[in-house]
Amino acid sequence: MTLFGGIEAGGTKFICAIGNGPNELVAQTRFPTTTPEETLSQAAEFFIRFMEKSHTQLASIGIASFGPLDLIPGSPTYGYITSTPKPGWANVAIRDVLQARTGCPVVIDTDVNGAALGEGKWGAAQGLSDYVYLTIGTGIGGGLIVQNRPFHGMLHPEMGHIRLPHDLQKDPFPGICPFHGDCFEGLANGPALQARTGQKAELLPPEHPIWELEAEYIALALQSIICVTSPQRIILGGGVMKQSHLFPRIRAMTRNLLNGYIQAKAILDEIDSYIVPPALGEMAGVLGAIALAQHI
């Protein structure tokens, strides 16, 4: 049986797995993201030990990584993490290091593009060719799949850094993005919720007023994403979206913001199945990395 490796390279933790899909994982591990040397060594060692013990050569390894990333083939820094604010990780050649140490072909893409591919192959976007996966947690990022392939363009989409209407009278919070202040991520990620309320988002009750504001910011972003990319479905994942009570609010606000302009059945009559949670849950990232490996 041909086996593939997958790495969800997150700013907080790495998840590594080996297999062919959600029901065919033969090994997996997770560990905290520390320094590049320590973390990449742990990841490489996981795959090397498996191959030595099983006498099986992995066909390829996919990395679904936090970024920003250089995804331009032929670029001297292709496969590098670039201008990340995570200390010590800027300009790290994550793809090259893991390819050299494991001896396997390695492909890399953004964490959200990876998760999107996983949801398309095994999850909430099965049967679709054009869709968006948006993660809302410690950061905010969006993966765009066009004709079954991750869209990159000049670099790759950064949906978390689009600018939103910000009513400073209603919400005087200045935002926490180190680059843009009150962009989507700066206003609506988990740390922004904690900075306003003094509590972690998962501890806030559903009736807390911050959730109405959060739903509004997400809906404003979705309005723009729908108008620009016209996806067949939008999948909302990440830690913040574990608050399932947000979904009905976001759907209603998004439809109201579009105000009948987008005459599509998915928006007008089927929005409950248009804006949806991920079907793969917390495994979307690492399964998406395996899907990336299978795309080589």
Rank of each mutant, 00 (worst) to 15 (best):
G19L: 02
G19T: 03
N20Q: 14
N20E: 13
N20H: 08
N20F: 02
N20S: 15
N20T: 12
G21F: 04
P22V: 13
P22T: 11
P22L: 14
P22Y: 10
N23Y: 01
N23D: 15
N23A: 14
N23C: 08
L25D: 04
L25P: 00
V26Q: 05
V26H: 05
V26C: 10
A27S: 10
A27R: 05
A27I: 09
Q28V: 04
Q28C: 07
Q28E: 14
Q28N: 11
T29H: 02
T29S: 12
T29M: 02
R30Y: 08
R30S: 14
F31Q: 10
F31A: 13
F31T: 12
P32D: 07
P32I: 01
P32C: 02
T33H: 08
T33I: 03
T33K: 02
T34K: 14
T34G: 11
T34Q: 14
T35D: 08
T35K: 05
T35M: 12
P36C: 09
P36Y: 07
P36Q: 08
P36L: 07
E37R: 03
E37P: 00
E38I: 09
E38L: 13
E38Q: 14
T39M: 05
T39C: 06
T39H: 10
L40K: 06
L40M: 15
L40C: 10
S41E: 14
Q42H: 15
Q42C: 12
Q42S: 15
A43G: 12
A43I: 03
A43C: 08
A44S: 15
A44L: 09
E45Y: 04
E45V: 02
E45H: 09
F46T: 01
F46Y: 04
F46P: 01
F46S: 02
F47C: 00
F47H: 00
I48T: 08
I48W: 00
R49D: 12
F50Y: 14
F50K: 04
F50E: 04
M51N: 02
M51Q: 15
E52Q: 15
E52S: 13
E52V: 03
K53F: 05
K53H: 11
K53C: 07
S54F: 00
S54K: 09
S54L: 00
S54A: 11
